[in-house]
Design a binder for these strands. Structure first.
Ligand SMILES: [Zn+2]
Ligand SMILES: [Zn+2]
Ligand SMILES: [Zn+2]
Ligand SMILES: [Zn+2]
Lengths: 135, 135
DNA sequence: ATAAACCCTGTAGCAACTACAGGGTCAAGT
DNA sequence: ACTTGACCCTGTAGTTGCTACAGGGTTTAT
């Protein structure tokens, strides 16, 4: 005998996975989420499998992976053989891009902080921030 | 007697300011760049003033300011009175958002680096990165 | 005169959603 | 059985900051 399969409406899936209900539909349209079964009236019926994938996507997004990268991660995780090194490489590439972003932002941060400091010390009628941007 | 005014085509302005020619048109459409005079044939004729503004916009973008923020900076820089503190405040708000982005990225960086380390040390058939995202 | 190089407008594409409009469906309460 | 309200459906448009066309017109030089 089969055990009963727990199913979920879109709103329920959204609540459980902490992924916005509209976004769930969007992920399906991008091919990130398998299209679920439909009720007689045409409404989507999600099962645990979908929730797991949604959580996978959400976690990956929280780590800054693009949807394209996540798609690749998903297919790697499905094809179990030798995927470990490929997952590692994908992640390493992504890590480098994060480091690059941090570098860029730190440069902005420093420049801005310096400018604001000059602005604080300013006694002339012209704002040194505007000056620096205009020069 | 007037000195001659040096004028520039879009491509020339792009070259001098290091702003893409299409982007220059885009900035005009957003109200960031004053619409320049036109030739008899309808082509835009830029002068130094436009170049300066384009450089201002580019520098601000390099500091991560949004176009909306840049618009505000421009109107502050035009209305010279008491603008210094307002420019400072706008910049300080922006600086905070940069700091927040850095914090987020650093968290991602750490998590990812840890995962990759675990992946390197992995001897099981399942990639621990996939595992961590799936769990 | 004719070609190359540029310009014009308007529109569509990118990423990753989010927010409708204008319907249809479902479950609970009466 | 019926109604209400909450949900769902599709398709489309908006967001940000560009970038890239298509299908023309203009300028400039030879
Ligand atoms: Zn691995
Ligand atoms: Zn990445
Ligand atoms: Zn100032
Ligand atoms: Zn900002």
């Amino acid at each position: 005998m089969n055990s009963k399969i727990r199913s979920y409406s879109r709103a329920q899936a959204a609540k459980v996975t902490n992924v916005n209900a509209e976004t769930i539909r969007y992920y399906e349209s991008c091919g990130l989420l398998q299209p679920p079964a439909r009720s007689a009236g045409g409404q989507r019926i999600y099962i645990e499998e979908h929730l797991q994938r949604l959580i996978f996507i959400r976690r990956s997004r929280e780590l800054g992976f693009t949807l394209k990268e996540i798609k690749d991660l998903i297919s790697l995780s499905d094809s179990s053989d030798r995927s470990c090194s490929q997952v590692r490489d994908l992640s390493a590439v992504h890590l480098r891009s994060i480091k690059a972003k941090i570098r860029d932002l730190k440069k902005m941060e420093k420049t801005l902080a310096d400018m604001i400091k000059q602005c604080d010390a300013n006694t002339t009628p012209t704002c040194p921030i505007i000056g620096a941007l205009t020069s």
